[in-house]
Design a protein around this nucleic acid. Sequence first.
DNA 1: CGAAACATTGAACACCCTCAAGGCCTGTGG
DNA 2: CCACAGGCCTTGAGGGTGTTCAATGTTTCG
Lengths: 202, 202
Amino acid sequence: MRSIRPGQELMAYGAPVSGPLIILSGWAVRSRILADGRRQIMSFILPGDLIGNCRQRCPLSVSSIVALGSLTLCPGPIAIPALDQVYAVSHALDEAYLLAQITRLGRLSAEERLIDLMLELYERLSLSGLTADDGFTWPLTQSALADALGLTPVHVNRTLQHLRGRGDVTLRSGHLQLTDPYQLAKRVGHITARVTGSSELS
Amino acid sequence: MRSIRPGQELMAYGAPVSGPLIILSGWAVRSRILADGRRQIMSFILPGDLIGNCRQRCPLSVSSIVALGSLTLCPGPIAIPALDQVYAVSHALDEAYLLAQITRLGRLSAEERLIDLMLELYERLSLSGLTADDGFTWPLTQSALADALGLTPVHVNRTLQHLRGRGDVTLRSGHLQLTDPYQLAKRVGHITARVTGSSELS
DNA sequence: CGAAACATTGAACACCCTCAAGGCCTGTGG
DNA sequence: CCACAGGCCTTGAGGGTGTTCAATGTTTCG
């Protein structure tokens, strides 16, 4: 098990991938920085998630991975046939979340993007039992949210206030509370990721 | 080998994935349609590309796949250990292209998005020998481009004319010609996808 | 207690959208 | 051969969503 400090880079863009890691606690982001400093967050990595899950020889990282807060992680087991399915499902879910992110950025309004992302995080954390009473720990700054949603921090702030004003969410001191997740999902047309026919998840 | 008509759906969203397929000729798109009719194209599928490349049990499709023009394809070989690496690299490249798409949609301007996508398609087709003299067949309507780039067809049209006006590209009758790919790549900070340490690609 | 990071607010502007109309090209049928 | 229909592309004018710049308030932490 390893401990990581806030802001530390777990994996650098273009660097060789050493091996699979499992996040035990804390959040991280997969991101890319453009030449002029613009940053795009591709996806969020939550407790229980697997990273560095590559099958090709000499894999290179296609994104950098940065710890949002303090993080603990441990090496993932390799070459255990019984875990093939777990790795495969994990990989498929990762892909599904990337597709959801593309749809958010390409076709949703700022308000829809925020709600849709909150619902995705809520569902993913629920699978690990990290939610309680439709709420969960929220370590994201508005600036990080902006980089994930393709917006500016200023506009994220205004959109958040709009959501608070409508009573859709309660967000303060690192905790997000969804007033009515089902109703929100219906409003923005949010769909839950599903990658296998049977109901075996994660 | 199978032939597919223009507009035909190869794979439906949420439907079981039957098995791997290889595109022999023609282009297709991975897309998702929202409840109100908005469409987002996640990625383009080019000749030589592999689809339905899932390892989990009972895989469900997380996007629908639609033929852009006429298409020919054949089933991909399965359970041949020697091909594991090919499948792994194909999968890694797919992921890299999704990340590139996320960055395009989240942080690039309309003009940058267009150029960046053109360069990606150019590079991918080059790997299959489907380009000649910095140009290639261009089967995309402006409407399809808009759905891929998160823009409206009207604005795609205006942006294209701007590019033509600057002499960056020549686009007419189904053929795209890049005036100076290297210069364009430099201008928008485009980076070529790379997923393995050695120089074995595709 | 002071500094730094984060959140909030206002005003002006830009990029891209919407709506609507017209032009071009291709294939089809009379 | 011509008329017509249906995609697709093009163009204009006006409006809205989100940006930029800048300043102030708030929280956190050493």
